[in-house]
Nucleic acid binder design. Structure first.
Lengths: 69, 69
DNA sequence: TTACATTCGGCAATATATTACTTATTTATT
DNA sequence: AATAAATAAGTAATATATTGCCGAATGTAA
């Protein structure tokens, strides 16, 4: 899970739902500054912060067994 | 993703691999104090810290569409 | 151009995660 | 019981995440 990929997932889903960063900020109770930092892959969010965002975006974080390379 | 569940996943996998918290700490470069706090669900780790642990445990963090309830 | 909405980023303040050090507690074994 | 290994937890210091405030940049439309 690269931070840059995570940012893209959040941004894409937010756009799919037609939400601005500001609206997502209000819904998730995460600062807009934090949101755009995460979307750009420049932040290293905590699980709690990330989960609040993902909840608003109808997404979930799960742990899986790693692929064998 | 509840923090307590996450802790159980990490603890169970660590035991499966026969690693002590100390060994996992050395392998993942995460402080042992941080590890047992996470395992007990008392910590709110960052993505980077969590990913370092999961890497050592052959686990991955992914984002999925949330189940419809 | 102007105006507006949206996103980006610098800066400082606050909150909190992480660490190191130390001691306590648990658990297993003899 | 005693000993050792592993885990838990308290404290303090440091690093960093989060926030708020502000202005800059970007894109869109009139």
């Amino acid at each position: 899970m690269e931070l840059i990929q995570l940012g893209h997932i959040i941004r894409d889903k937010r756009n799919e739902l037609g939400l601005t960063q500001e609206v997502l900020s209000l819904q998730s109770d995460v600062a807009i500054k934090t949101i755009h930092s995460i979307e750009l892959g420049k932040a290293n969010p905590s699980i709690k912060t990330l989960t609040k965002l993902l909840e608003s975006l109808q997404l979930s974080l799960i742990v899986i067994n790693k692929k064998i390379n």
